[in-house]
Design a protein around this nucleic acid. Structure first.
Length: 554
RNA sequence: UGGGGGAUCUGCUAAUGGUAGGCGAGAUGAUUUUGGAUCAUCGGGUCCAGGUUCGAAUCCUGGUCCCCCAGCCA
């Protein structure tokens, strides 16, 4: 049996003792930005738990602050959750849909003497709050009568006071060692149209108040959030205890996902986008779900990652290698293999007749015979990868060098006879000879040819732009730096033009993924690729043990 | 400084008083028409100090280190 995490243990126990007959979880994003890989963990957790334990998971937009929210984001979020493979069915909600009910709960709090209208300014409120070492002071308005509070709150709603003039606060304990309990603000006046309720409201509830009550209204059983809300839990419970809610959800906190060399914070991501360090929320370098999707990551690989990293309460920084392993494993099974030369070097096979075209047979995916085979045209002039030739090769180099042999993948063995250079001394062309007895992997005389390189027929090649990506930041944990934007990797994007692809790649659909043999996994860019100007993104390079050996030696 | 959390291989995570295990990364070898994939093998850990116990990663005591909280953000 799969090991369970501590949240599952709680659920199993609650189901066993009959505390709950079935579970209801929720994923509650604020529509103020795009979802990222950290949210993916939460989505997988909440929806995954619902699937596993035969419950349901709601998608609820936590839209209590019109200042930062935008309907563009709600659509993007819905798209991303769906893309990840989850379905909320009819359970799509907005905290804004509960504004009237929430208002009533606030009135109830006032009626029970548990909330009051405060006239203190924001600065005064901050001062009165005290500090970690000093208790706060009661507001002079704390002891207003219930009637006065009711009247004032009603007039706050009616728009009689300017923004910021008054707030509604819970009356708890200004001396509490937990800052959250020092009479937290539960309503503020903000004249700002809301993306769902328009101009209906000039007062908006705060998260701490709206969240537990929304959970209760939806009969959420397990309200799962991240660690930084641990201190808010007593307040979460306080609101449930002091209002007549229809159910009693339980808040459980887990550690958010952090990935090395990137950021998983909506606010910071938003800044990168605003500052123009990346092309947008779906820039393939950015760990948003939209970015990962555009980069070529599959939903399966992201879900796999979330499963592998597990759920616990330790702050952790997950190695990018884990994510990369997940995509490679998925794409290895599913991606059709193709030939693509990224940095072309022209090669003329001197004993190959001018007009001859040999159609060689190539396997589409050695991991999956059902994907079939295809024909590749081989002609006198071909392109190979520049790095597959070295004039003065190091030890153990298995590719082409003057006088050396190499096999063309699925083709013949060729031998480098001559090297042609330009005036700068750069190698611009190779003249080679071909051994026509070596098709099909054979060498009739039994000689060993270790190197195998990929190639594309010059005459048949399709040109393309290929975008290579590197880590977005130069430091492992940019979020902990004073200003993370100082560490954006200037080399995070490398654009290659004039890449030579095998002809079958011309008709690929947007978003389709391939393995370029010996290179990595690539997908057709959904935004910029056009039939006559193809653009590919490199999702992830293949593991490269040769590069590793070289790095070790040099 | 008050409060709330957390510490297990190099990274992530199991073991719920009874053999410290898995995955990733790394190394080595086999195999291979991708220096890919696959397979096999190896190395490597309980924050520290005491205590309870036949037995402690787990329970107790005392330390150390790390994270979070003083928005009319969520």
């Amino acid at each position: 049996m799969e090991p369970t995490n501590f949240i599952e243990d709680i659920i199993i126990e609650d189901l066993k003792t009959g505390k709950h007959k079935s579970i209801v979880t929720r994923f509650p994003p604020e529509p103020n930005g795009y979802l990222h890989i950290g949210h993916a963990k939460s989505i997988c957790l909440n929806f995954g738990l619902a699937e596993e334990y035969d419950g349901v998971c709601h998608l609820r937009f936590d839209d209590t602050d019109p200042a930062s929210e935008d309907p563009e984001f709600v659509e993007a979020i819905k798209r991303d959750v769906k893309w990840l493979g989850f379905d909320w069915g009819d359970n799509l909600f907005h905290a804004a849909d509960y504004f009237e009910a929430l208002y009533e709960f606030a009135v109830e709090l006032i009626e029970n003497g548990n909330a009051y209208v405060d006239d203190l300014s924001p600065e005064e409120i901050r001062k009165y709050r005290g500090s970690w070492t000093e208790p706060g002071k009661n507001s002079p308005y704390r002891e207003r009568s219930i009637e006065e509070n009711l009247d004032l709150f009603k007039r706050m709603r009616a728009g009689e006071f300017p923004d910021g003039a008054k707030v509604l606060r819970a009356k708890i304990d200004m001396g509490s060692p937990n800052m959250n309990m020092r009479d937290p603000i539960i309503y503020r006046i903000k004249r700002m149209p809301h993306h769902r309720t328009g101009d209906d409201w000039v007062i908006y509830p705060m998260y701490d108040f709206a969240h537990p009550l929304s959970d209760a209204l939806e009969h959420i059983t397990h309200s799962i959030c991240t660690l930084e809300f641990e201190d808010n839990r007593p307040l979460y419970d306080w609101f449930l205890e002091n209002t007549s809610v229809p159910s009693r959800p339980r808040q459980i906190e887990f550690a958010r996902l952090n990935l090395a060399y990137t950021i998983t914070s909506k606010r910071r991501l938003a800044r990168l986008v605003e500052l123009g360090h990346v092309g947008g929320w779906d820039d393939p370098r950015v760990p948003t779900i939209a970015g990962l999707k555009r980069r070529g990551y599959t939903p399966e690989s992201i879900r796999d990652l979330c499963e592998r990293v597990g759920v616990a309460k330790n702050n952790s920084l997950v190695d990018m290698a884990m994510l990369e392993h997940c995509v490679r494993e998925d794409l290895n099974k599913r991606a059709p293999r193709r030939m693509a030369v990224l940095r072309p070097l022209k090669v003329v096979i001197e004993n190959f007749p001018e007009d001859k075209v040999v159609e060689v047979e190539a396997i589409n995916n050695p991991e999956d015979p059902s994907m079939g085979k295809r024909k590749l045209p081989l002609t006198r002039e071909i392109y190979i990868e520049q790095e597959d030739f070295m004039e003065d090769p190091p030890r153990r180099y298995r590719r082409l060098a003057p006088g050396r042999e190499v096999r063309l993948r699925y083709g013949y063995v060729i031998k480098c006879e001559d090297v042609i250079k330009n005036d700068e001394g750069e190698v611009v062309e190779l003249r080679v000879s071909c051994d026509f007895d070596t098709l099909g992997g054979k060498t009739p005389d039994g000689r060993k040819v270790r190197g195998i390189i990929h190639w594309v027929s010059a005459e048949h090649a399709v040109d393309a732009e290929v975008r290579l990506y590197d880590r977005l930041f130069t430091v492992e944990n940019p979020a902990e730096r004073e200003d993370f934007v100082d560490y954006v990797n200037p080399k995070s994007l490398e654009i290659l033009t004039g890449c030579k692809l095998e002809p079958s790649l011309k008709d690929g659909a947007l978003g389709s993924f391939y393995q370029f043999e010996r290179q990595g996994y690539f997908c057709i860019d959904t935004e910029d690729s056009k039939p006559d100007s193809l653009v590919f993104n490199r999702t992830v390079a293949l593991r490269d043990t040769w590069a590793k050996i070289q790095q070790r030696n040099g």
